[in-house]
Amino acid sequence: MPDSDTAIDVQNVTRTFVLRRRTGWMRRERSVLHAVSDLSFTVRAGEMVGYLGPNGAGKSTTIKMLVGILTPSGGRLRVAGFDPSRQRLRLARRIGVVFGQRSALWYDLPLRDSFELVRRIYRIPPERYRRNLDEFVDLLDLGPFVDTPVRQLSLGQRMRGTITAAFLPNPEVVYLDEPTIGLDVVSKAAVRSFLERTNREQGTTILLTTHDMGDVEQLCRRVMVIDHGRLGFDGELAALRARIGGVRTLRVDLAVSMPAMAVEGAEVVRVEGTRQWLQFPADTSAAPLVSEVAARYPLVDLTVGEPAIEDIVARLYTTDRLPAPRVG
């Protein structure tokens, strides 16, 4: 049984979908897709956890069950002590949700008026609303466009407004689905800083789904990896990289074109003019490589590239030989 510090409790949850396809003029074939299979995990209050996996892995299905949009086919769910599908209205005041580029704001209203509607819907006390709004406007730099109609805002501005709306009621639990997708560097940095500070200072529990490993590395100590509807890993990101292995890439820009560099611990895999790409094990530090390159070669710029989450997950499930989702 979960203790009082458990914000999200998922026990042996499954979710199936019935699929029908035409196989003839008057015939249809029926099959059952197991989108989530015997999924179990808990998230303690105040944690910020990355929930990772490739497209179609079951992440969105899980989030929709945690919100109460979908009802589990089997198993048990509790969020902030509530059953999401049976107590959805009561739970709604305890949670916040951000679904990628799908804005929860009112497009024809100024951003400030959208926030006012959130205040009324969630019945946020006026003093707390003003305090939160002033703080969020400052942290997310909303001041220059808070009185601009939402439809005139850029993607990054709308996302910062959407995140503000989700956090205004001081929710206990927030689900973030790709919160930095398509954002420029400045907007992405503002969102990450806001999430880190809100989690640390207010103790908001955050479940983050993303394909951006930068989000995960900056924000999450713990990650869960799901694929084929099953949980394949639950632990620290460093432990996941150590378990799976793989390679990182060091892209180096030199002042002049040169033959492939010879750097201990790395292999040059590509050379294009003054640019070279080196690969090295993912579980080793890039610092010694960077130091050696800077000391021996006419360095102009360099970038360290992390393994794509799809590659990490693919290696995880190839190694563990988990079955594909059952259809039948």
Rank of each mutant, 00 (worst) to 15 (best):
M1I: 09
A7V: 04
A7H: 04
I8P: 05
Q11S: 14
N12W: 06
R20I: 06
T23A: 09
S40L: 10
T42C: 11
V43T: 02
I69L: 12
I69F: 07
L70T: 10
G75S: 05
L77M: 00
R86Y: 02
Q87G: 05
R94W: 05
G100F: 02
D108G: 06
D108H: 08
V118N: 07
I124T: 01
I124V: 03
E127F: 10
R130K: 14
E135R: 12
L139E: 01
D141K: 03
V146Q: 00
D147F: 03
Q152P: 11
E172R: 07
T180C: 12
T180P: 09
D184V: 06
A190W: 01
V191C: 10
N199V: 06
T205D: 03
R222L: 03
V223Q: 06
I226L: 10
G232M: 12
G235H: 13
G235A: 09
E236C: 13
E236V: 12
A238Q: 13
L240E: 05
G246L: 05
M258K: 13
P259W: 15
M261S: 12
A262K: 03
V263C: 11
G265K: 15
V269F: 12
Q276W: 10
F280P: 00
F280E: 05
P281F: 11
T284R: 15
A287E: 12
A287N: 09
S291G: 11
A308L: 07
A308T: 11
I309N: 01
I309S: 00
E310W: 01
D320L: 11
R321A: 13
L322W: 09
P323E: 08
G328C: 06
G328W: 09
